[in-house]
Each structure stands twice: as structure tokens, then as C-alpha cells.
Simulated assay, not measured.
Amino acid sequence: MVLQLITPPVEEPVTTAFLREFLRLPPDQEENLLTRLIRTAREVIEDHCNLVMLSQRWYLQLTNWPQSGRIALYKAPVISIDKVRGFSADGSAVQFSSDDWRLDTESRPQRLYLRRPQYITIARGLEIELTAGLANEPEALPETLRHACVMLAAHLYDNRNSAQAGTLMTSLPDMVAQLVSPWLRRGRL
């Protein structure tokens, strides 16, 4: 299984100006670093929670047709399934219609159930393009997730030289872990 980002979010959960104010840094100091830290914080939290905060497009490739017809989508919440394409034995692509699949948004991870059309013999796998995200703009995100991004970015800023000292972050800081705990991959989204 290959899961690859096609289109990243247009904005991050918080701005560099907000993080700079939180860190009490002078204006325009370390802009590039703060940008990278915010993006890293978002990516770490999304990966930790199996959650997509802001709208993103993803590409999922499977080498084999799932026997059950069920595919776990490890990016949630799914906004839309944009394309489902299979490959026949001769390698030709076959586009699936929306009648050939059903999205289960109630399970976690969310699942795509495929109905193999009788006229298609899948031999070389599937490609799925999907759009996922909890919100389209940062202001629509729950404040706890935005604050978790700020806290983690600040932690990364404060510990930016830790790698040189030989200590690496192996888990989320306690406060960040508490803030994101309701969003972990348990239960429903």
C-alpha cells in the first residue's frame, strides 16, 4: 500500500505571527524556522491521531484487489472520494463509477467498500484519490487542535538543539498528548 500526499493544505492551523507572539519573539525573527516548525507540528499531530486537520488530497495505491472489497482509509475524515481506478490483467485502467463503491464514514478508520463489477477482472491493483480534512480553513478547526500545534511548535523551537545533544523526541510532550487525546483513532470521528 502506498499513501502519498497530492495537494497539501493551503494554510497551516496557526500563523507564524501567532507562534511568534506565543514565543515572545521580536517581529520577523526566524520566519522560515517558525513556518517549518508549524508544518512539522501539524504533520506530527496528524500522524499521531490518524487525522487530517485541513483539507488535503491523497493518493492511495494498492497492488492487489482486497478479497473482502474493504479498504481502510487511514486519512480521516474523508470529505470525498475523487477517483477509483483499477487495472485489468492487460494493464489497462478501468474507471469505477460511484455505484461501484460505498464510503463508510461511521467507522474509524473510515473504509471504502468496493463492489467488483462483473465485467471487470482486477489483476494489478487499485488507485484511489481522496480529499480529507476536518476543516477547510484554520479558524474552523477545534481550538484544542490549534493550541496543540502551537504547543508542539513551541516545544520544537525550545528544543531545536536537542538533536545535537543526542536526545530525540520519542513521544509527544504531555500537554500536547492531552490536548490531542480525544482525536486519537478510537471510536468515531
Rank of each mutant, 00 (worst) to 15 (best):
E30V: 15
Q61C: 07
G133C: 10
I120F: 10
S80Q: 02
A41D: 02
L141P: 03
D90N: 10
R160Y: 01
Y113S: 13
R186N: 15
L51W: 10
P142C: 00
T63Y: 02
L168P: 04
R124Q: 09
L152D: 00
S107V: 12
L156D: 00
E21T: 15
L103P: 07
V94I: 12
R108W: 13
E30G: 14
G125F: 02
E129F: 03
L145N: 02
P66H: 02
M175N: 13
G133E: 09
N136S: 11
M175A: 14
L103R: 09
P8V: 00
N50E: 09
T167L: 07
R42Y: 03
T40F: 08
I120M: 10
S171G: 09
T40C: 08
S92E: 13
R85P: 04
Y157K: 07
Q29Y: 15
K83F: 12
P13A: 15
Q29A: 15
G166C: 01
E129S: 03
T63W: 02
D28G: 15
L37N: 01
R39D: 04
G187L: 13
A72C: 08
R188C: 15
S92G: 12
Y119V: 06
I45C: 04
R20W: 14
A76G: 14
D82M: 03
T121R: 03
M169V: 05
